[in-house]
Structures are given as C-alpha cells and as structure tokens.
C-alpha cells in the first residue's frame, strides 16, 4: 500500500473542464488514478474523459463516493474550493495553485487541522505513487525519474525534485510515494506530518527530504526521528547552502524559529538523529546505498 493515494482511491477533480484540469485528468487516468467525477460550476451534464461533471462538490458527493479531491482552481479561488471540499466531507485534498494569498493559506491549514483533513500544497506538482496513481502533474512517463520502488520522497520544489529523484533512480532505487508539500511559506501539510504515514508504509524503506533554507520543517523531521516516531533511514538534500543572506523575507522566519532555520542548524539537527545530509543531488543516492546496504531496492 502506498501513502496518501493508491489505484483504488476515489478521486474528484475540481475544475475538471479547464484547460489544465482536463489535460491532466487525462494523464492522471493514464497513470492509474481512479478518477470518479469532476466539478465545474455551470457545466453539469458534460463529461471529461468519460467522467460526469457536476455543478458543485455537494452535488457530486450525493451521487458518487469520493475519498480525495484534486483542485485545478486559480489561487484566488482556492480557499473557497478547499472549504467546499471540506464541506463535502472530503479529507484528502491536493491543490497545485501557485500564488495562494498568505492569509488564505493560514486559514486553509487551520481549517484542515480542525477537521482532521490533510491539504497538500499549494505551489506544488502534487502527489504520485509511481505505477499506481497521481494527483497533480508529474511527467510519470520519464522512467529515469518516476520509477516505482521503495524510497519515499518529500519535496518543496518542482524541477529540483526531478533532478534529485533522477539521482535516486540512477543509484538503483525507485520511488514508493512522492509528496510535494509545495514551496509556499504556509503549506497545508508539513514534512513532519507525512512521516508517520511513511513509517507505517510497508513499501517504503527510507525517506528522502528535498528541503531548503529558512523555516523549521527539516528540524521538525529530525525531532520526529529523535522521538522514535519515525525510525526509517532519512536522507536530506538542502538547496541554497551557499546562497547569500538577506534577499528574501527571512525576518519573520528567523523570529519564529528563535535561531533555527540556518542550513548549519538543519544539518546539525538531522545528523544528530542519525540522518544524512547530501551536499550534492548525486550524494543522495550514495547515502541511500550506505544506509540501506543490500536491502531490496
């Protein structure tokens, strides 16, 4: 069983009739995803890829069983669409929108937390378990990146994920489930919150984090490992080690973390619990070999 979604998960597509929505619905089905219906206000009665389109989430869930919702909705309407999915009782939501207003993102995460739901994104490519299913847009047909295997990958980036995952595959491994939590300052779900799912997944042997400077998400993962909540091997790649300071906001992040958030702190935190931090994408594969030895890849 993979994490978040597999080939049985019943997926609704909000914004299914749009250009992006219909294009990627086709590919999600191609990847094995069980797309059950779509929503676009005003378009009920139409079909996309043979799936019925409904005016609203409520009208869709009245007719078909839905377990997860994929949003192809512009950033300024994302809060409304997430709340609509939550209102429909859906507990797994992925939003790829790039440009969700910060204060909307805070309310989205708050709502997900209070309803026991998981919102992945925004500003992400989504979630993929190669060979099984995906919610979002991944070039799953590129074998040297999206090869099925036993390594879990969590990431904040798009292009860098392709780069690093290609190195994981080059080292002889493949991917069990890849979760793009997204590059926004307030993602709906944080790295550490995914770790218990990877821990419970008998198809994941180790987890790779593709992180970045700032914030405390990598430190939170180290804490989970330190507490024994996550016990599998952990390898991190952190971009921006030599980046000059002071070009991004920085301020609030530094205050929140009270001195955490520098690359030095992140490396220290991860290494102190037995994790590895790769200086170059290529080293991620090397560390996996070192940590997993001859275990089945």
């Amino acid at each position: 069983m993979s994490i978040f979604i597999d080939e049985t998960t019943k997926v609704l597509i909000q914004g299914i009739t749009g250009k992006e929505g219909s294009f990627w619905t086709n590919h999600m089905i191609g990847c094995g995803t069980n797309v059950v219906a779509g929503v676009t206000p005003g378009k009920e009665g139409q079909q996309v890829e043979g799936r019925d389109v409904y005016h609203s989430v409520r009208r869709a869930v009245d007719k078909v069983e839905v377990e997860a919702s994929m949003l192809f909705v512009p950033p300024r309407f994302t809060k409304d669409a997430v709340f609509e999915a939550l209102d429909g009782g859906i507990k797994k939501i992925v939003t790829v929108a790039d440009g969700i207003p910060l204060h909307d993102a805070v309310q989205i995460r708050k709502a997900a937390m209070s309803e026991g739901a998981m919102v992945i994104g925004g500003n992400t490519s989504g979630v993929i378990s190669p060979g099984r299913a995906m919610m979002g847009f991944f070039p799953y047909w590129i074998e040297r990146v999206y090869k099925q295997g036993r390594i879990g990958v969590m990431t904040r980036s798009g292009s860098l994920t392709n780069e690093v995952t290609a190195m994981v595959v080059k080292a002889g491994f493949g991917v069990s489930s890849l979760i793009g939590i997204g590059g926004d300052p307030v993602p709906g779900t944080r790295f550490a919150e995914m770790l218990p799912l990877y821990e419970a997944d008998d198809q994941t042997d180790a987890v790779v984090i593709i992180g970045e400077l700032g914030g405390t998400m990598e430190e939170e993962c180290a804490e989970m490992k330190g507490l024994g909540i996550f016990t599998k091997p952990l390898v991190a790649f952190l971009g921006g080690r030599t980046a000059p300071e002071g070009k991004r906001m920085g301020h609030a992040g530094a205050i929140v973390s009270g001195g955490k958030g520098s690359v030095k702190d992140k490396i220290k935190a991860i290494e102190s619990v037995g994790g590895k931090v790769a200086e170059r994408p290529r080293f991620v594969g090397d560390y996996l070999k070192e940590l997993l030895g001859d275990r089945v890849r």
């Binding site: 798009g158 292009s159 860098l160 970045e212 971009g239 030599t242 200086e279």
Partner: peptide, 25 residues
C-alpha cells in the same frame, strides 16, 4: 545581480539555487 563569471538561466527556484551551490563548490 552578482559580480562573478557565470550567468545562470535556469528553471525553478530549488534547481537554480542548487546550481548556484554547485558552481561555488
């Protein structure tokens, strides 16, 4: 803007900062 020798024309914030690191290494 920096004042070195190599102009980066890359895609994606994560990949671009990684290339920036690799050049320094």
């Amino acid at each position: 803007q920096f004042d070195g020798d190599i102009s980066l024309m890359c895609a994606g914030a994560g990949l671009t900062t990684t290339v920036y690191d690799l050049i320094n290494y």
